[in-house]
Amino acid sequence: MFEFEIHHRDGRARVGQFHTPRGTVNTPMFMPVGTQGTVKGISPQELQDIGSQMILGNTYHLMLRPGERLVAAHGGLPGFTAYPGPFLTDSGGFQVMSLGHMRKITEQGVTFKSHLDGSLVELTPERSIQVQEALGADVIMAFDECPPYPAEREYIQRSLERTERWLARCLAVKSNDQQALFAIVQGGVHADLRQQSLDLTLPYNTPGFALGGLAVGEPKEEMYPAVAFTSERLPENKPRYLMGVGHPEDLVAGIALGVDMFDCVYPTRTGRFGYALTDDGRLNMNSSAPRTALTPLDVACDCYTCRNYTRAYLAHLIRAEEMLGPRMLSLHNLRYLHRLVERASAAIVAGTFSAWASEWSERYFKGKVPAWFSTALHHGQQALPHVSRESHAPKMNSN
């Protein structure tokens, strides 16, 4: 049911398909984030029109409001939201980090103060799985502890060991074989801790694996060696999910290193703040340049926004604080990321990914391509090594 097939490779980048009960998705792919059952400002039909394949929802938020029972009464998230395709639900592990001032962690689980009314809410591995089964997503995530950056090595080690124990508890109570549970590899930016987490996690042989504990504030010079290290040690025949990552440069670098799935609020949040994503970088619609421009945001883009509106009109909407402006920018930004992944996939199929990514980055970074990005592309073109369980190469930060 959750078969994963790789059809093309170019270096470590790969194009494949992941089969779920609600349909087959093409990888690599970017997943729009619908934290509370909606991708902000975008209708389900628009998501389908721009090529969205799988939507992310969040266990913690949906558990608090409207509650998983109401969602289940609609037949799960597809019936509740009217988006008919596959869903993935985050277990609530990210809130363990992001709500650090409002929670207490024990071996049993996490006790939160609700961000809505301050009431105490307990989320355990068992409760997370119970809620995710009621939400009815195709892919569910193991409940994990996501350390912040920076954090003490000792804390990161304790958290990854606890994450493994929580994974065992998640699998022990999981009862719905129509859902694929992905395990999450932690370890921060430390090679030896990443290896320890891999050694603890891989024996569970879950249908897919996530790279967790990254994009939480660390510099990209530390993040991408961790991505490379972890990705090349994950099973070749399982999808790899880099959690919480969605800047254009991160998608290209992650794809180069063999990542298959991404998600982030970045495209819609950026749109709400008045920015548009393009191959020339981020366009500020509050600046003076777009105010009289009679061209679309992107002449190569096929989204509804670019087919119908000029930069001048969109800049007017943003300045006038008309709700259509952020909506249209969000729609374009999502389509831009989907198109970016589609172009990367086409280059992988053609065997020209490295050249395409280099050309794209020269334009995107305006000729000043950062060293971390070039290193990621170079690493992605190297032959996959035979990695032993004890190997720690390539070198990463272990301080």
Rank of each mutant, 00 (worst) to 15 (best):
Y364S: 05
L283C: 05
T278A: 09
R311L: 10
D260A: 04
C306R: 03
T278Y: 08
Y275I: 12
F353W: 02
S374I: 11
L297R: 06
V259S: 01
E362R: 08
L294C: 12
L297V: 15
T292V: 03
Y364P: 07
A346Y: 02
D279A: 07
F373C: 06
T270H: 10
L337T: 00
D263M: 04
Y364I: 00
A276F: 14
F365K: 10
M323V: 11
Y313A: 06
A344G: 02
N286S: 15
C306N: 06
C306E: 07
Q382D: 05
A357Q: 00
E342G: 14
Q381S: 11
V265A: 03
F365S: 02
V341A: 02
R282T: 15
L324N: 08
P296D: 12
D260C: 03
H379P: 09
F373A: 01
S358R: 09
A350K: 13
L317F: 13
G380V: 06
T292L: 12
S287A: 14
I318D: 02
Y275A: 11
A344C: 11
D279M: 07
G271Y: 01
K368A: 15
S330K: 00
A376R: 02
T270D: 13
A355H: 07
A346V: 02
N308L: 14
S287C: 14
R339S: 12
D280F: 13
S330T: 10
Y275Q: 14
L324K: 09
S287I: 08
N286G: 10
W360T: 06
H338I: 15
L377N: 02
L294E: 13
M285V: 11
A347W: 01
K368E: 14
W356L: 05
L334Y: 00
I348V: 15
C301A: 05
A376L: 05
R311H: 09
W360M: 06
Y266T: 04
L337M: 11
W356C: 06
C306H: 03
A276S: 12
L331M: 04
R343L: 10
R339W: 04
M261C: 03
D302Q: 15
T268M: 02
A347C: 09
M261F: 05
R269Q: 13
R363F: 07
A320K: 06
F353L: 05
R269L: 02
F273E: 14
K368T: 15
L314S: 04
V265Y: 01
A371E: 14
A312D: 03
H379L: 10
I348T: 02
N284I: 09
R327I: 05
L337C: 00
R343F: 02
T278F: 12
A315Y: 03
Y336S: 00
T268W: 01
T375D: 15
V369N: 07
H332L: 13
I348F: 00
R319G: 09
T278G: 03
L337G: 00
V369Y: 06
L337N: 00
N286F: 10
L283V: 12
W360Q: 07
T292H: 09
V349Q: 12
